[in-house]
Design a protein around this nucleic acid. Sequence first.
RNA 1: CGGGCUGUGGCUCAGCUUGGUAGAGCGCUUCGUUCGGGACGAAGAGGCCGCGGGUUCGAAUCCCGCCAGCCCGACCA
Length: 554
Amino acid sequence: MSGSRWSSWSGAWRFSANFSPGFSAIGCLPILRGANSFAARFSRKPMSQPQTAISPRRDEDFPEWYQQVVRAADLAENSDVRGCMVIKPWGYGLWENMQRILDGMFKATGHKNAYFPLFIPLSYLAKEAQHVEGFAKECAVVTHHRLEADGRGGLRPAPSAELTEPLVVRPTSETIIGATYAKWVQSYRDLPILINQWANVVRWEMRPRLFLRTAEFLWQEGHTAHETEREAREETTRMLEVYEKFAREHLALPVYTGEKSEAERFPGAVQTLCIEAMVQDRKAIQAGTSHFLGQNFAKASGIQFLSRTNTQEFAWTTSWGVSTRLIGTVIMAHGDDDGVVLPPRIAPAHIVLLPVTPKPETREAVLAAVEALAAELRARTYAGEPIRVEIDQRDIGGGTKNWEWIKKGVPIRVELGPRDLEKGSVAVARRDRAPKDKAFLATAEFVEGAAEMLQSIQDGLLARATALRDAHTVVLDSKEAFYAFFTAKNSERPEIHGGFALAHWNGSREVEEQIKADLKVTIRCIPFQGADEPGTCIFTGQPSRQRVLFAKSY
RNA sequence: CGGGCUGUGGCUCAGCUUGGUAGAGCGCUUCGUUCGGGACGAAGAGGCCGCGGGUUCGAAUCCCGCCAGCCCGACCA
């Protein structure tokens, strides 16, 4: 941008070098930033120079940081349609990778894909009482099927074309799929039905945020019907395990698994299981849910079958889903002050090659070498797939180009210039290290170790996220400690505080509501593991069967 | 749906109180100098100032109406 910004950077380098000549780039980084702000105070344009690629930093204003990161990484933007986003190629590439991996896991557990209508008759949605309450307020409704000229050069829905029954744009598909299953199921021999749908859904949210909460979003919804309660419950658990594994192995997200309290349960479900992740402002985010629906929807939709003993029975159903919200979760969990940091497993490109072509006479040779390197890398695999390589030979400044890829979070950046050609080496930078931390590796050595390096980045992200989660997960045994934990020191502009709290709870909804009203803290889940010793509710003194997980959440 | 605020080039905004038919930075284009580190200089392109009406010789600016969006609450993957 401005020349003074760059000179300030180099000034900072000199400054820090005077004090700590032996530091590695990583160790140097905080000092470099500190020195930069120190230097900035004495430069001509003191406050105009961001110290990091993203401004504000996470610790300054996390929500604003998030928005800036989404924009800087070119993942998505707000559209002209209120509450709806345009997912750009880099962001959609993430979704495609998530889709492909999950789809494979669904297939491996016996599911097949199908597609059901976007429009759901109003009467269908009204069939299940709890469901009605849960979704009534947030639906988009189609009332007309034709437009006509309004006489002022515009268009309007034709009054003569009003639908006899309004259609709801699906907020979720339980009802229409239930109605379909009712036709498909006659006998116990027709069960189980194991189907998944990749789709968009609409929930007319009042406060949209890119990826985290938009009026329209993309997801998958699995819908299964079973002969017995036991089978359906097993299915519910199995799919939660799929989500947990996916989050851990592919998104590098350690998650708590557990059951939702009654207050947080999906409308119409008997039991809602979930995976809950912690992001860097220490809030919880529900990253996936799996519902045991009992016979509620089967009864509402008439999914009935003749059993082995010749009796008429209702089927037991489940549903489970994850959405593009996972993209927002990954951004908030792994991103840093220089932008997105992508887990290699889901990165649209694993490696970007940046040809350095300072002189026209060496340009051709460099470009050829880059093409050859790309071919070599693409012939190799990482996590069972060909390594995804992108070449960026756009004619823009090398620094600018490099920073764009840092902000986009590509796991590995490789520079290749004339001097590297002579030495047979490449300059390799990892996104999980400092921006200027480059390793000069022999080309063959780099190619050989590329997949391993990607996995090392993947593992590092999981380790870092796990450390963050564990550092901010506390066991609390008093109401005072609980309130202190979840109260920011600065009430005007709350700093990042709190985290996950494991505490005893008497199981009452009143307590949940009080805590939510006082602190905006909710029960994220009743964990399956590691919290099952009995105790005393810290709010009421009544007995508690186990600790539950509390947090502020998205 | 309640309370507050804002609509000015692609983006962020200044100008409005004290009317005289538009400005800055970033971005974009071209040329030159640079370029193994988010470069610099010069020259350009781009706006009926949200929409409609009113006051006035004259409205981005004042008045009325409408529309849209943002922020704070209730709701939510």
